[in-house]
Design a protein around this nucleic acid. Structure first.
Length: 234
DNA sequence: TGCCAGGCCGGGT
DNA sequence: ACCCGGCATGGC
C-alpha cells in the first residue's frame, strides 16, 4: 500500500515525514538506546517471552537465575523440569505460562531447525514470522521482537506504547490492528533493521516516561503534548 | 492500597 | 472476526 499523494506539494505532511520527524525528535532527546539487553540471541528470545505484559525489572532476576543455573540454551530449557524452570522465572510473573512458552519455543527450534538459531534466522522473514506465530506463547509482538532483536530481520515491532503514542497524536485510530500499524512503519521507512531497532527502543523509552495511563507528565513528551490540530492522515 | 507493566491463549459470541 | 477472563509478580 502506498501513501504517496500525487500532485501534493513537496512539503505536504506525509507518513514518511511524520515518522521521520518522530524518529529524529526522539533520537535527539534520548540518543541511541543499545537494545535489546541480552548476551546472546537465545537470551534475547527468552527475554522477549518473559517480558510479556511485565516490567523488565521483574525479568532481570529471572534471567540471572537461568544464567546461574546454565539454562540459557535451548537444550537446557527442554531438559529442565517444568517445576524447576517455573520456580526460577517466578519473578517475571505468569511463571507457569511462561515456563510452558519457553519449553514450546525450545521444542520448536529443535524440531524445525535442529536447535540452531543460525539456521532458523536464515529463513525468509515472512515465512519465519508465520511459523513463530504458530508456536504456543508467541504472538505478533514477540515474533517481531525475535525477528528484529535476535535475528536482525527488518521487521518493525509494535507494542502498547507505539499504539498509545500514535493514537494520542492522532496518527492512528483506535481500531487499527497490529498489522495495520506495523505496515504503517514498514511501508514508510527504509527497510533497515538498525533503524527499526532504534526506533522501537526510543518509542518504549518515551512511553515509559510520558505515556502511561493517567500520567500527567504526558504534556512534557518530546513529541509534543498533543497534535489535535493536525488532521488525520489518509 | 490499588494500579500498572515492552502479551497471549482459549473459549465464547 | 472480535471480545473477554485468566494468567502473577514486584514497584510505585
Amino acid at each position: 500500500m502506498s501513501n504517496a499523494r500525487p500532485g501534493a506539494p513537496a512539503a505536504a505532511v506525509t507518513w514518511q515525514n511524520s515518522l521521520q520527524t518522530y524518529y529524529d525528535t526522539l533520537y535527539a532527546a534520548y540518543g541511541p538506546q543499545h537494545w535489546w539487553p541480552g548476551r546472546s540471541r537465545f537470551e534475547v528470545i527468552v527475554g522477549a517471552i518473559l517480558t510479556q505484559n511485565t516490567a523488565w525489572t521483574n525479568v532481570e532476576p529471572a534471567i540471572a537465575n537461568l544464567r546461574r543455573e546454565n539454562l540459557l540454551t535451548p537444550a537446557a530449557i527442554e531438559a529442565v523440569s517444568f517445576v524447576r524452570l517455573a520456580r526460577l522465572i517466578r519473578s517475571s510473573g505468569y511463571f507457569r505460562q511462561k515456563a510452558k512458552k519457553l519449553k514450546a519455543f525450545a521444542r520448536f527450534l529443535r524440531r524445525e531447525y535442529a536447535g540452531s538459531l543460525t539456521q532458523m534466522f536464515k529463513a525468509p522473514s515472512t515465512e519465519l514470522r508465520d511459523k513463530l506465530l504458530d508456536v504456543h506463547g508467541i504472538g505478533p509482538e514477540t515474533a517481531d521482537s525475535i525477528l528484529l532483536y535476535a535475528g536482525g530481520h527488518p521487521v518493525f515491532v509494535v507494542d502498547a506504547y507505539t499504539r498509545r503514542i500514535l493514537e494520542r497524536h492522532r496518527l492512528a485510530a483506535e481500531n487499527q490492528t497490529y498489522d495495520d500499524i506495523r505496515a504503517l512503519f514498514e511501508s514508510n521507512l527504509p527497510k533497515d533493521a538498525a533503524l527499526y531497532n532504534e526506533f522501537h527502543a526510543l518509542i518504549v523509552q518515551t512511553g515509559k516516561n510520558y505515556c502511561r495511563p493517567r500520567n500527567p507528565r504526558c504534556v512534557e513528551c518530546p513529541l509534543g503534548p498533543l497534535l489535535p490540530e493536525r488532521e488525520m492522515l489518509p
